[in-house]
Simulated assay, not measured.
Amino acid sequence: MSKKTKGLLYNFIGFAIIFFSIRYGLTHFFGLEGLTRSLIAFGIGTLLAPKFQTVNTKEGEKLFMKWIFVKGIKEVE
């Protein structure tokens, strides 16, 4: 699997976990339903999800991650 594919997959998985967790919480704790619940979960998920990106360097393609809860940019093995 290429680094670009891994980055895309990691972006999707990270967002999906946060999105569905927030969506469930909004339903369970606040009683929100319908489009409002999904839009709020989308906004929060977009802000909180880690971002993965591939970069071409002299050593080859590398995958990097940036996240609000981790200081700086980290290289993913």
Rank of each mutant, 00 (worst) to 15 (best):
M1W: 07
S21M: 07
L39Y: 09
L63H: 02
K66W: 06
I40W: 00
T54E: 08
E59Y: 09
L47P: 06
G45F: 00
G60V: 03
F30K: 12
R37S: 07
T54L: 01
L9A: 15
L8T: 11
A16Y: 08
T46Y: 12
F20R: 01
M65T: 01
S2A: 10
M65Y: 04
L32H: 07
L26Y: 04
N11G: 06
L39H: 15
G72H: 05
K6S: 09
L48H: 07
E61K: 01
L63C: 04
L39A: 15
E77H: 13
F19I: 03
A41E: 01
G72V: 05
G43Q: 09
N56F: 06
M1P: 08
A16N: 03
K71Q: 14
I40N: 00
L47I: 13
G34K: 04
L26Q: 06
Y24Q: 12
G45A: 05
Q53M: 12
I18S: 02
E33K: 11
L35H: 14
K71V: 12
G14P: 02
F52V: 05
N56M: 14
A49D: 04
G60K: 04
A41G: 03
G25R: 03
K71H: 12
G25H: 02
F69A: 10
H28N: 09
G7V: 04
V76S: 07
Y10L: 15
I44A: 02
K71M: 15
N56E: 15
K6P: 05
G43N: 11
K6M: 10
F19M: 10
G72I: 08
E33W: 10
K74A: 13
G14I: 03
I40T: 00
I40R: 00
K66M: 08
E33R: 11
P50A: 07
L39W: 15
F29E: 12
Y24E: 14
F15H: 02
G31W: 01
A16W: 05
Y10T: 08
T5G: 04
F15G: 05
T54P: 10
T54Y: 04
F19R: 04
K3Q: 13
I18C: 07
V76Q: 06
T57N: 09
F12M: 15
A16P: 07
T57F: 04
L48V: 08
F29W: 12
I40F: 03
N11Y: 11
W67R: 04
G43D: 07
Q53G: 13
T27C: 10
F30H: 10
G34M: 07
L9T: 12
Y24C: 10
M65S: 09
M1K: 08
L8P: 06
F64D: 00
K74C: 09
A49W: 00
K4P: 04
Q53F: 13
E61D: 13
